[in-house]
Amino acid sequence: MPLSTPPAPQSLQHAPGPQHRRPAVTATGLWRAYGSGEAQVVALRDVSVAFAAGRFTAIMGPSGSGKSTLMHCLAGLDTTDRGTVDIGGTIITGMGDKALTKLRRDKIGFIFQQFNLLPTLTAEENILLPASIAGAKADPAWISQIIRTLDLQERLTHKPTELSGGQQQRVACARALATRPEVIFADEPTGNLDTRSSGEVLRFLRKSVDDFGQTIVMVTHDPSAAAYADRVVFLADGQIVRDLDRPTADAVIDTMRGFENRVPLAGEAA
């Protein structure tokens, strides 16, 4: 079971509201179902949502609500049955594999629960990997700034097995930011971390929005982690049912309690 996340600091300042901010990612009328007939499970039901640039958004919901499916469709990791996804002005739904791979490489950063670092590479080589794959030269000043912010200067020559879980996730954060992507998708980024490491990662994600203008969309089950965000989007039955600005952990918990006695729809994911 994932360990608890420390509460967001009381003095945490969230970014301004979405007014006058362009969307970094927009989903329009998304449907996604798996299986067919009586065995069909509908994961997303006509979901439309926009994520403003330079903001930190958390996606939450009960098990089977469709939150991970939504993230996978937004990031081009899964296909949709109907609807469109726009990233930075580019419609990604219907793209071929080659074009989609290039877009993910150029415009999207990923942070996963399992870190997904290459074990044979050092921390520095893992950080520089996206630029290397793209055949581009990373901006040395930008990479140095990220490394300093994440306090990784003394760990650059270490391989993943020589790093703690928190250090590995900080390397993953640096890798995600290395190419200055349009958006970073974080899938339960603190799920495998202890309380201290969780706080370090969440504070960095918050700082990357406030100081670097990064856009982050994070799936989480943890109200304390969601409290670091500017906004929380709640899903149930594959639909958006609540949109909460300037969340606190208590407000998130109260909202989630409203789902406890919910009656599942026919074909809803378990």
Rank of each mutant, 00 (worst) to 15 (best):
P2S: 04
T5V: 12
P7T: 06
P9Q: 01
L12G: 01
Q13Y: 08
P16A: 07
P18M: 00
Q19L: 15
H20C: 04
R21W: 06
P23C: 04
V25P: 00
T26H: 06
T28K: 07
G29Q: 15
G29N: 12
G29P: 10
Q40W: 09
Q40S: 02
Q40Y: 05
L44G: 01
L44E: 00
V49M: 08
V49E: 05
A50H: 08
A50L: 04
A53P: 01
A53D: 01
G61H: 03
S63K: 10
L74G: 05
A75I: 10
D81M: 04
T84D: 10
I87W: 01
I91R: 15
K98M: 13
T101C: 13
I108V: 13
F110I: 03
N116E: 14
L117T: 00
A123R: 00
E125K: 03
N126W: 08
A131S: 14
A131L: 15
S132W: 12
G135I: 11
A136S: 14
A136Y: 11
A138H: 07
A138W: 11
P140V: 11
V171G: 06
A174N: 09
A174K: 06
R175P: 05
L177Y: 15
T179C: 11
P181G: 12
F185E: 09
D187T: 11
P189W: 11
T190H: 02
G191Q: 10
N192Y: 06
L193F: 09
D194K: 04
G199W: 00
G199L: 00
V201H: 00
L202V: 05
R203P: 02
K207C: 13
D210K: 10
D210M: 15
V217E: 05
A229K: 02
V232H: 01
L235Y: 02
G238C: 07
I240G: 02
D245C: 13
R246D: 13
P247N: 11
A249Q: 09
A251H: 10
A251T: 12
V252F: 03
T255P: 06
R257P: 03
